[in-house]
Amino acid sequence: MGKKPLETKIQATDLSVYYGAKQALHRISLDLYEQEVTAFIGPSGCGKSTFLRSINRMNDLVPTARITGHLGIDGVNIYDSSVDVVELRKRVGMVFQKSTPFPKSIYDNIAFGPRLNGITERKELDRIVEESLINSALFDEVKDRLDASAMGLSGGQQQRLCIARAIAVNPSILLMDEPCSALDPISTAKIEELILELKKLYTIVIVTHNMQQAARVSEYTAFFYMGHLVEYGKTRKIFTNPSKKETEDYVTGRFG
């Protein structure tokens, strides 16, 4: 694969997030690149999930949250008052730590997003569902039981279903908040394989506690600590030759 020029997809400038009086993120500035996988690592409570959730404005749901600074996607500040949050979230998909299939059929789970967008034609929905399932490497396992309840799937399948559901609305960015933390190693390997496939189509940001996982799937890594961005750069560099002492201590397992 030839080297493609890096294009900035998400650009944070001096982004601070407060929960009430507590500051959770301190003036974060970083650029995330298009069609690359970026991993956020750091100990619990370091602000990596907060940053992830500010990319699709999920923090809006927390009544006490307050955000200052600039966060641009494709050059548009998503915290501008003219930005429609609902439209934004359609462009920025999200997969959560706990797989959360809706208690509906597999088909209806994936069709949920497209239906919100007003797609009602059965043929079109069929196509989207099939495509999403194929792209999330779940199609072969469930193609004969699309009408069965999604609750009957295994944990790993449920998480891939959530990925399928997220990509069914055709986002350009995929946020993953510790997508494998509740899965067994085999399911985790499948999801990781899938992430490497999906990066051809989407810009992916993944929060993980698993250092090996970050090393395996990501091209870039950002290390957060106590609400500050300590270091950001090529994953290989972060893991083999970090420039900050804290980063080295963390990736070598000396703390965290």
């Binding site: 609902v86 999200m94 997003g113 919100l116 997220a166």
Partner: peptide
Amino acid sequence: EMRESSLALGAT
């Protein structure tokens, strides 16, 4: 999480 998943898909 279920509400958040729905909202994250662009549901109002």
